[in-house]
Nucleic acid binder design. Structure first.
Lengths: 171, 171
DNA sequence: CCTGGATATTTTAAACTTAAAATATCTTTC
DNA sequence: GAAAGATATTTTAAGTTTAAAATATCCAGG
């Protein structure tokens, strides 16, 4: 039997980089590896949030933003911070309001805007999740030393800067 | 007037890190910065794909995987490489098949499996997008030197390793 | 004041994504 | 060789996400 083996045994647990050549452009390799790491972390957090607290990552991210802004945020500020569209935030907030975790009220002085903030229950729920969340993240970064992390933080800052510059240009 | 300024002028263009304290755990800061970078890049590529080729990022990612596997991939292999669920791939492939960019055929020797590969038209379409895609990525990494990128690549490899280890454990 | 452009949000339609259940097939074991 | 468990995929329902259009309000200039 010399048929092609479609199960591709070399790829037991592939990712975006699988099949990429070492002589491909460095930039692409960095980007794909970055994406792989982000996906692995996201997947882990998502699963933990579901199993431990029966909630979702977008809900958690949104609540984390509100937790850091005790005076509340407008819908627009929220969507900028979460880097998602306005419409997306509208839907998420709708659901969180229904669940009683978030409250929406008209912004003083601007009848177009809404200010959103955590309710008492929302704050309580979020505080209950924070420690476990921190543990998960810490656990995932266990393989990196303090030096590694500061180096990584610095390089990512530089990349972020490089990315932010070309955001303004747009068109 | 000494009211609270809800527009928060310091946060013209916030991101996940906005509002984070410098004394927060290092791991969390690295993770959020990583996420911010990934989001900025994704957003840029997504917009470029739409404006330039009228397509989407998931479609492009899927075609990129198939392009690297000339003999095709099973649905399962594809979902592992893209790090998304099986059902997700089913839907994406359905659409790409309809558009004539991808073909699906029974896997030889296993009647449960499907082998998917780019059609002639799909290969042509993908090849037409590759150079522009590379340019976009290169442009975004312009602020990083070769040294920075290799350092970043190394650190991310270490992180990826750290993350992969705890994947196996899972229960 | 009032008109035109800017800003804040919601709505809409379509696509994407997930987790879980359902199918179908393979593989092993007795 | 039939039952039990493992694998490969699809289906389902709900949620998330996007881009674009629609609303509503603000603000600046005449």
């Amino acid at each position: 039997m010399d048929e092609v083996d479609l199960t591709d045994r070399a790829e037991v647990q592939g990712d975006f980089e699988t099949g990429l050549n070492a002589d491909d452009q460095l930039e692409l390799r960095v980007w794909l590896r970055l994406l792989t790491c982000a996906n692995l972390i996201e997947r882990n957090v998502r699963q933990n949030l579901r199993e431990t607290f029966d909630t979702t990552l977008p809900r958690f991210d949104l609540m984390a933003q509100l937790d850091r802004a005790p005076d509340g945020l407008t819908m627009g500020a929220l969507s900028r911070r979460m880097m998602v569209t306005n419409g997306n935030v509208t839907g998420l907030i709708d659901r969180l309001v229904t669940e009683g975790l978030v409250e929406r009220r008209p912004a003083p002085g601007d009848r177009r805007a809404q200010v959103v903030r955590l309710t008492r229950a929302g704050k309580r729920a979020f505080d209950g999740m924070t420690p476990a969340h921190a543990d998960w993240i810490n656990e995932m970064f266990k393989g990196l030393g303090r030096q590694d992390m500061t180096a990584l933080l610095r390089l990512l800052a530089k990349l972020k800067q490089s990315l932010a510059e070309r955001e303004g240009q747009e068109k």
